[in-house]
């Protein structure tokens, strides 16, 4: 798999990238182009016939559940709901759980 990350060139440049990628990977592999564009811009870039996958805002509550568990909290589902309700940024959410996990490991006190 070859991922062209945050592609921001012209359609011609994109074709050039993809052509190079196609030449460099085995036939069964895949070329992925990732954009942080709005849809209008991205639609202009798409090559005909290729799949378009739209990523939307992350499900913070789902992510919080996993983060609470991976930091070692037994009551991960409950803790996730409590912690995620006032957070809108996934990076802040992650830091919250990492800090809580570090403190709990240091003190041996788990909620």
């Amino acid at each position: 798999m070859v991922i062209y990350d945050e592609f921001s060139g012209s359609q011609e440049q994109l074709k050039e990238f993809v052509t190079k990628a196609e030449a460099s990977v085995k036939a069964k592999e895949i070329t992925v182009c990732v954009y942080t564009f709005d849809n209008t811009q991205a639609n202009i870039m798409h090559l005909p016939g290729s799949a378009v996958i739209k990523f939307t805002k992350p499900d913070l509550e789902r992510i919080a559940e996993v983060m609470a568990a991976t930091e070692g909290f037994s009551n991960w589902a409950t803790l996730a709901v409590e912690t995620a309700k006032d957070v809108t940024d996934v990076k802040i959410l992650k830091k919250s759980f990492v800090d809580m996990g570090s403190a709990a490991r240091a003190s041996g006190k788990w909620s």
Binding site: I3, I30, T31, C33, S50, A51, I53, K54, T56, K57
Partner: peptide
């Protein structure tokens, strides 16, 4: 049925890459 090319698009921080 595919051509081996996928485009992923969306806002920053949505886990595309």
């Amino acid at each position: 049925a595919g051509n081996g090319i996928v485009h992923g698009e969306g806002p920053s921080g949505t886990g595309k890459t």
